[in-house]
């Protein structure tokens, strides 16, 4: 049934990667930019929200609830809602959507970390004359850091996956390769390149963040 001049269609094809390296790098760069941007913006939004939720207890429920509700909006619908405001082809659409999705993970983990700081430690610090800024930097942050970093790692890895959905706006990072392969008569090498690229990117990001966590919390290993 194959036409005579039809090329074979293997799952793994190094010549696809070398022949399309420039395109792959462009998509990879976009994937990384969107992931890093969304997670950074997410941290900047989630930290004040978590601090607010800890200080004003009745707000904790609504803040967590709202970020969870945002997460339940299907990503395709989210990008469609945002597109008229952020520009139909702009990567901002994807960036804003992804940032909102990181909130559910980041706010929850940040709040859990902050709530895990023992009250007597904070009281002792306050008794020693720590102001609220110094209390945050020298007491809250170091003690909550493991929970912060756990949240950051989950948010980053899940964002790497979600970027691919941005393909409906033409800004899907490596997702462009996955969908493009499906639309090019099921070009397996292209699909696999996009999919494997996503997996590798998530792994690399996770390892980097794990290393950062080790660097930032030397005291957790000093005891052993």
């Amino acid at each position: 049934m194959l036409a005579a001049d039809e090329a074979s269609n293997p799952w793994f094809d190094a010549s696809y990667v070398t022949g399309n390296w420039d395109t792959i790098v462009v998509h990879l760069r976009q994937h990384v930019t969107l992931t890093v941007g969304a997670v950074l913006l997410g941290v900047l939004l989630a930290l004040p929200l978590a601090l607010l939720a800890r200080r004003v207890r009745p707000l904790a429920g609504p803040v967590l609830g709202l970020s969870s509700v945002v997460y339940t909006i299907p990503s395709l619908a989210m990008f469609a809602f945002l597109a008229p405001f952020t520009g139909p082809l702009s990567a901002t659409t994807v960036l804003v959507g992804l940032t909102l999705y990181t909130l559910v993970i980041l706010v929850r983990n940040f709040l859990a970390g902050l709530q895990g700081v023992p009250d007597d430690v904070r009281e002792a610090a306050r008794g020693m004359g720590y102001g609220s800024a110094r209390l945050f930097w020298q007491v809250d942050l170091p003690l909550a850091l493991p929970a912060f970093m756990a949240g950051l790692r989950i948010a980053t890895v899940s964002t790497v996956a979600l970027v691919t959905v941005g393909v409906i706006t033409g800004n899907g990072g490596l997702g462009q390769l996955i969908v493009g392969g499906f639309n090019a008569n099921f070009y397996r090498a292209e699909i696999v390149t996009g999919a494997v690229g996503c997996v590798l990117l998530a792994l690399v990001a996770d390892v980097l963040l794990a290393g950062l966590e080790r660097l930032l919390t030397p005291w957790t290993r000093a005891v052993a």
Binding site: A80, P88, L89, I168, T169, G170, N171, Q176
Partner: peptide, 20 residues
Amino acid sequence: VREVGNRELYLPALISGSEI
């Protein structure tokens, strides 16, 4: 060349003319 997504998104962009 710029890769775009659905017609619902790219046609408004073509009409505005700023990106494509």
